[in-house]
Simulated scan of single mutants.
Amino acid sequence: MSLDGMTAWGRGHAVGFYALDGEGIDAVARFVADGWDLDECVVVVATAQHRAAVAELLTGRGYDPVARTDDGRYIALDAADTLQQVMVDGRLDPDLFLARAGEVIGQASSAGVPVRAFGEMVSQLWQNGLVEPAIELELMWNQLLRQHDFTLLCAYPTGAFEHAQLVDVRRVCELHTDLLPPSAVWEEGGVVEAGHACSRVYLPTPESVPAARHFVVDVLRAWGHAGLAPDAALIVSELATNALRHAGSPFRAVVDRRRGGLRVGVEDTTDTPLQRRDITIDDVNGRGAHIVEALSERWGSSPLPGGKVVWAELPLESGPAHVG
């Protein structure tokens, strides 16, 4: 994920998406270091593994987390332990959360310096399938932001939303002032195994369109249908652009091999269909439906719970498939 410009945003509630690798940990370390460079107090609520990895990176870059702790510029807490402190009978207790989190932010700001915080508690809930409590916790953080002046960065693992309902993903996005997608999102999926269908969820940011395009190309190459990749990628690119421009929605790119053909599509959280518009030769925009229609055997839109999918079908190449 990219945190470039984070310090310029001022107070706010951002959400980032990271892989459990060097890039994600490096981004968190830069977030902490940026705060120290501005003489801020930094709060990190993360797993023991991630806290240790961040501290190692910071030490390697000439920072001293222990000294910053002693100076009141660094507060590191365990995400699981902190969650246990604010839950009763398996449910989040708003009063306990506001009291505990307010205590930590108050301690961080006691020296009269700005505060920034990085947290993984929401991620812990989401990964355990506790979607509603995760969203409730996001709401509690927003309430705390109205009571205290600080910058908050929440994090979800890359791929956390792959099997989630898009309406839930949209709720998460709407609770944040900034979205920080992975900087190399289309390189994080790894090898795509041959199969019947693949899908991936993307945030409503401009980076998601090329990411979805690369995803489709990777899937089709893995399936041995590289010849279809250019047309399929362009179709998904147009549909993803439509989801961002007209729906402002997270979307799911889908590639499905069925009955001798290929179906590609984009799901979003609105019921507004993609429509053909009358265009002139001078029009720059508004050609999405025309492009999809020209490249596919047939296309259409189908309703889904909480939204729709716009799909297009292409014939599989004749003869044996080959990997391009």
Rank of each mutant, 00 (worst) to 15 (best):
V122R: 08
R171S: 15
I135C: 10
L125M: 09
L125E: 07
Q127W: 13
T158G: 03
E132L: 07
Q165S: 12
D149P: 03
Q143K: 06
I135A: 12
H163K: 11
T177Y: 01
L153W: 05
V172R: 00
Q124L: 14
E162L: 04
E132W: 11
F97E: 05
W141A: 00
L152G: 03
T158Q: 02
F97N: 02
V104K: 04
E103T: 11
V115I: 06
T158E: 00
G112T: 06
V131H: 10
Q143D: 09
T151R: 08
H163V: 09
E162D: 15
H163Y: 11
N142K: 08
T177D: 03
V122L: 15
L98N: 14
T158M: 05
D149C: 05
F118M: 08
A108R: 00
P133C: 08
F118P: 02
G119R: 00
D149N: 10
H176R: 00
V104N: 06
A160T: 10
A117C: 15
E120G: 03
F150I: 04
V104A: 06
A160N: 08
G106L: 05
V104C: 10
T151E: 10
P133M: 08
L96T: 07
H176W: 00
E136M: 05
N128M: 12
T158N: 04
V113G: 06
Q127A: 15
E174S: 09
I105S: 00
G119T: 13
N142P: 03
R100K: 12
T158F: 11
E103M: 09
Q127C: 15
P114G: 12
L137K: 03
V131W: 10
G102T: 07
S183A: 13
G106D: 15
F118T: 04
R171Y: 10
L179Q: 01
D149E: 13
Q165D: 15
A111P: 02
H148D: 08
P114S: 14
I105N: 02
I135L: 15
L139I: 08
E132V: 11
D149A: 14
Q147N: 09
L144E: 02
R170P: 01
S109V: 04
G159A: 14
F150W: 10
L130F: 14
P182M: 09
L96Y: 10
L180F: 10
L96S: 11
M121C: 12
Q165E: 14
L180M: 13
Q143V: 02
M140W: 04
Q124K: 07
A111E: 12
N128Y: 08
L139R: 14
A99D: 11
L152K: 01
N142F: 04
A134D: 08
L144C: 07
E138T: 06
R171I: 07
R100H: 14
L179A: 06
V167G: 14
V115M: 01
L152P: 01
L180R: 03
E132Q: 14
G129I: 04
Q143I: 05
S109A: 15
G106C: 07
W141T: 00
C154D: 09
R116H: 13
L137S: 03
V115C: 03
S110D: 12
L175N: 01
T177M: 00
Y156K: 05
H163E: 14
